[in-house]
Computed example of a mutant assay.
Amino acid sequence: MKVSSRFIKLLLVLGSPLALISWNASAQNWPTSTVTVVVPWPPGGPSDIAARPISKNLTEALGQPFVIDNRAGGGGNIGSAAVAKAAPNGNTLLITSSAPIVINPSLYKNMPFDPLKDLAPITNLLRVPLVLVAHPSVPANNLNELVAYIKKQKESFAYASAGSGTPQHLTGELFKSTLKLDITHIPYKGSAPAISDLLGGHVPIMFDSMIAIMPHIRSGKVKVIAVSSDRRSPLIPNVATFAESGYPSLVSYAWYGFFAPARTPKDIIGKLNAETLKAMKQPEFQKVLADTGSEFVGTSPEAFAEFIKGESAKWSKVVKESGATVD
């Protein structure tokens, strides 16, 4: 039997609202099963540290298990791509550092996903200042003394980072280009081995996140040169910012955010945002903020999306001007 196009159009007009009502109803009931929170980094790092209290509080608030899945590799790309390609039903989420979201797209020739198109921002979780530290043998106690010392060196001067493509690496490149320094990047596979070589005097300086380097600052095993935040950190209030030393463009943070696959229903995103902001005000997460030197940065999905666009433009420019690569 031949069905007229007019009848098909009538079905579409009548059916669409019914489908929408059905979908909205399922969104209101979400979650109805275990939710996987992918962390594309090994256990124990800042993304993981942020994810655990958030997942715990969401489990309690929403009545279903929120389970951490540490899926490391590819500079955060492997786990992040898995979430980007997951069904947009709220059952697979992502908590990650900024690297695979705003840095890797400029560094990798073949990105397995498009962060701006394939992921839906929920909220920022942490914004951690980076610290420039030096081995005690380096004869400098502030930024101007360090710059003068580097410029006097006839042999190559180096800085270490937690790895190519990390915020630590790109902040080092921003430092290098802003101050017009001849320094070489030495990437490590994580903060721990880089810090080990710094403590051993094998590299003279490095950039690292507050949470990773603070124990060595407190013990006096490293010199603190400057902090990359826009104002002094309460954890090291006597340390000047780069801006205070005359370099206002050298502001940098390692930030960590919460995402869902693109096209996840807005009411699921809204529910996640509201419950996450509540979780961020609980004592367990407040301790994470204090330990990492982060301010409270919970925000709306829309504000977080605008922040990400700005960060993408910023780091794309740094990569282009510095010639930084992941090789």
Rank of each mutant, 00 (worst) to 15 (best):
A160R: 01
T184S: 14
V147D: 03
L132R: 07
A212D: 15
A134Y: 01
F157E: 08
G165H: 05
A99Y: 02
A148H: 06
S219A: 15
H202L: 14
I213R: 11
G200F: 07
N89G: 14
K109C: 12
L107M: 14
V131T: 09
P105D: 09
I211E: 01
L181H: 12
A99G: 05
P139G: 02
A162F: 06
S161Q: 03
V83D: 01
N110V: 10
V131L: 13
Y149N: 07
K176R: 15
D118N: 15
K85H: 15
L126P: 08
I101A: 01
G163S: 06
Y108P: 01
N89E: 15
A134T: 08
L143N: 02
H185R: 11
G220W: 14
I211T: 11
N104C: 05
L179R: 06
A194C: 14
L179W: 04
Q153G: 09
S209I: 12
H216V: 05
N124P: 00
V224P: 04
N141V: 05
S191V: 05
I95Y: 07
H135Q: 02
H185W: 07
P204Q: 00
S164E: 05
I195F: 03
V203H: 00
V131M: 13
A120N: 08
H169S: 04
V147W: 10
P121Q: 09
M214N: 13
S164M: 01
D197H: 14
P121D: 04
T166Q: 00
N141I: 10
R127L: 11
L130M: 13
N124A: 10
I150R: 02
L107H: 11
P139N: 05
L126H: 05
L146H: 08
A120G: 10
A87Y: 07
G172Y: 07
G200K: 15
H135W: 04
N141A: 09
V224N: 02
L93G: 06
I101T: 03
D182Q: 14
L174G: 00
V224A: 03
S219C: 12
I217L: 13
K180M: 10
V138W: 03
I122D: 02
T184L: 11
N104W: 04
A82Q: 12
P121I: 09
L143M: 05
P136A: 03
R127E: 14
L179Q: 00
N142L: 09
V83K: 03
V224G: 00
L198W: 04
H216K: 13
